[in-house]
Simulated assay, not measured.
Amino acid sequence: MKDIAEIYRLNPEEVYQALGTSPRGLSEEEAARRLEEYGPNQIQEIRGTPLWKKLLSHFTNFFAILLWVGAVLAFIADQAPLAWAIIGVIVVNAVFTFIQEYKAEKATEALKRLLPPMATVIRDGEEKQIEATRLVPGDLMILREGDHVSADARLVASADMRTNNSALTGESEPVRRSAAAVIEEGLSLGDVLNLVFMGTTVTIGTGRAVVYATGMDTEFGKIAQLTQT
Rank of each mutant, 00 (worst) to 15 (best):
R33T: 11
W84T: 14
E28I: 01
T120V: 11
G39I: 07
K112M: 13
T203D: 09
T120G: 00
L195W: 03
G25L: 00
Q129A: 15
E185A: 13
T60H: 03
E173A: 12
A119M: 00
Q44F: 03
T227H: 03
K53E: 12
E13I: 14
A209V: 01
S178M: 06
Y8H: 15
T169V: 04
G205D: 11
L226R: 07
G215N: 10
E173I: 14
H58V: 10
L51D: 13
A5S: 15
A85E: 04
L193V: 11
E127H: 02
K54S: 09
L143M: 09
D78P: 03
V69P: 05
L55W: 00
I122N: 03
F197E: 04
L155H: 04
D152L: 04
F62E: 15
V211W: 02
D217Q: 13
T203P: 10
I65S: 07
M161V: 06
V210E: 08
I86D: 11
L26Y: 06
M1T: 10
P117N: 10
E184D: 15
F197W: 01
Q44T: 14
Y8V: 10
A167I: 07
F63Q: 13
G221N: 08
G125Q: 01
T203E: 09
I142E: 03
Y38T: 14
Y102H: 10
L143Q: 10
T200C: 05
E37G: 08
A32Q: 05
S150T: 11
P117D: 06
V202K: 00
E45V: 12
P116H: 03
E219R: 07
Y16L: 12
T227E: 08
P117L: 08
R144C: 05
L66K: 13
A71C: 05
N165V: 09
Q228D: 11
F75I: 15
R208Q: 15
T21P: 01
L114Y: 06
A132P: 01
K2N: 13
V182Y: 01
D124Q: 08
E185Y: 00
G199V: 03
N11R: 14
E145R: 10
P174R: 10
I4Q: 09
L115D: 01
W68R: 04
I86W: 01
N41R: 01
T60L: 14
G39S: 12
S166C: 12
L66D: 09
L67W: 01
I142G: 00
A181C: 08
I99T: 09
P174K: 03
H148A: 14
S178E: 13
D124F: 01
E131L: 12
D191A: 15
E127W: 00
I65A: 09
V211A: 06
G221M: 02
S150K: 06
G215T: 10
